[in-house]
Amino acid sequence: MNLKLKVWRQPSQEAAGKFEIYDIESVSEDSSFLEMLDILNERLLEKGEGPVHFDHDCREGICGMCSLTIDGIPHGPERATTACQLHMRHFKDGDTITIEPWRAKPFPVVKDLVVDRTAFERIIQSGGYVSVNTGAAPDGNAIPIPKKDADFAMDAAACIGCGACVAACPNASAMLFTSAKASQLNTLPQGRPEKDRRTLAMVSTMDAEGFGNCTNYGECEAVCPKEIKLDMIAKLNRDFAVASVKNLFGKAG
């Protein structure tokens, strides 16, 4: 298939970026979106032009590195699919495809389509952990956990931290990510002792990083490759309200 690519090129964080148009011919329908970009880069290198920089790692849809906004939709048109697992058969011969980086102030563009997502790491650092004393490994079944809670925590833990939620949100809000990371631990008994402190800290770090506010569009849920639901955000809203009131009376855990 033959395609026209409209790709965002930006030499560095400080430099201004712009779109470049590339025609790419005879792309296999079986190639993945990233393989298609590999082909483009090989041809650019052959011509002596600089390749298009983009993030990728596992190419199995589990690492959360790929971060392409394809025709305005983070990770492209397929639901529950990362860009690396998106295949060219979902496009038509002759299509023009617009490829942009995640766009959010806390995710500055490093180069072309590569963005710096360290802001997510700082949210995790502020509360996305449980404090465990070292020593002999505890018995895995020592603490009974209701199936419902275990399932909910697993759904939350499916988040790969790719940042598509932020990219898709018209407000560049990081609520889906933060709520998944907080809920994963807040739901389980091991995470409960630090629940209030964690909730308050992660939300305040998220705000300080400059992400926008959630206004319940639901776009994050629609693009999430791991199908994290808005339920996580509702839970964080609830946990934060409880933690705030407890904090007011010096009772936050």
Binding site: K6, F19, T69, D71, G72, I73, T98, E100, R103, A104, K105, P106, A168, P170, N171, A172, S173, G210, F211, G212, N213, T215, N216, Y217, G218, E219, E221, A222, V223
Partner: peptide, 22 residues
Amino acid sequence: ENKRARPEGYADNSTVQATYAS
């Protein structure tokens, strides 16, 4: 705050499921 969080917008502003009302 929401405008500030996205200083540079997308060329393609597609949405998937956001309602017209929202």
